[in-house]
Write a protein that binds this DNA or RNA. Structure first.
Lengths: 160, 160
DNA sequence: GGGGTTCAGTTCCAAATTAGAACCTTGACA
DNA sequence: TGTCAAGGTTCTAATTTGGAACTGAACCCC
């Protein structure tokens, strides 16, 4: 299967992956949440090849995750900002950071701490259930076909 | 920067991305959470080239996300199962699915529904604060350097 | 008005990765 | 003996990436 055929897949993960499932894209988005917005800044912080950066930013804009905003008119210069759709990726990034913190941290401890301004504490992200508010554990989740499901979305026989 | 230099980065996202920041890897993990475990099953469901699948499974095992378990002895056959480390990626996948559901769903609605067996409701995943239990919004999070932070982990000047 | 700088890209080539298909191995089964 | 299944490996061609240099518009300074 080709990479660019992914957005035609029915699965939400496949569609999401068609936008963000790339080494650099996730790192670019991490920086976006740190309020990095300009081409040169991304390039310097990431050490990414310039034309790959240009390509990824173009794709993210096309996907509606970032918008290209002119911040100066002569010479015309643009910066990249998260859209609502982009900001909605925050839980994905937070979960990823937390997993990295728990499982891949070096011996010096975690590189960044997250502070919740609402309750004024450093915190860890927890995945909760929208209905009961409890933490969602993988073993407490059952998946079933939804209205947009094709016949083969779930594996035929589930080995228990 | 080279892809395989990423795991030496200090950032937890970079380290996490060095393991899962790949088009196929995320789709393989999605299937793992759907209890797909065998080479042929992954290959058929994903349409992935066989030797790339072999490569990705090998890398996931090496990273400690999957384990290769013999399930039959003659001929010897192996399957791949999520480890604790792999299961801990559940929030990442759930967040990703939810984002896909909200922003990339087709006109027929979401492909799969998630059911929380503990409270017996279909639910959406919500990112909550480990300290106060409230939902964490992107704007309520401040990032600051942690004990393992190098000098340049955060952008120098934050444009407000 | 010549020279240097900044930012946001583009262009070029070589190197690495991926897709697609065929092939291999072990053993079961008929 | 021949076929089948599972879990891979090997091969070649096409695509993507890395690295580095170049462009272009407008500023700033002398």
């Amino acid at each position: 299967m080709r990479w660019n055929a992914l957005d035609k897949e029915t699965c939400s993960v496949a569609r999401a992956v068609s936008v963000i499932g790339d080494r650099w894209t996730l790192l670019i988005l991490r920086d976006c949440f740190l309020r990095v917005r300009r081409f040169e800044a991304f390039q310097e912080r990431l050490g990414i090849t310039r034309h790959i950066l240009a390509d990824r930013l173009r794709k993210l804009v096309k996907a509606g995750v970032l918008e290209r905003v002119q911040y100066q008119s002569s010479p015309r210069r643009f910066e990249y900002r998260l859209t609502r759709k982009g900001i909605d990726l925050h839980p994905v990034l937070m979960s990823l950071v937390h997993w990295g913190d728990v499982h891949m941290a070096g011996n010096k401890g975690r590189p960044v701490l997250h502070h919740h301004t609402k309750c004024d504490h450093d915190f860890d992200p927890v995945l909760a259930c929208s209905k009961c508010g409890d933490e969602v554990k993988a073993k407490d989740v059952r998946v079933r076909p939804g209205p947009g499901a094709p016949a083969d979305i779930l594996p035929k026989e589930i080995v228990p």
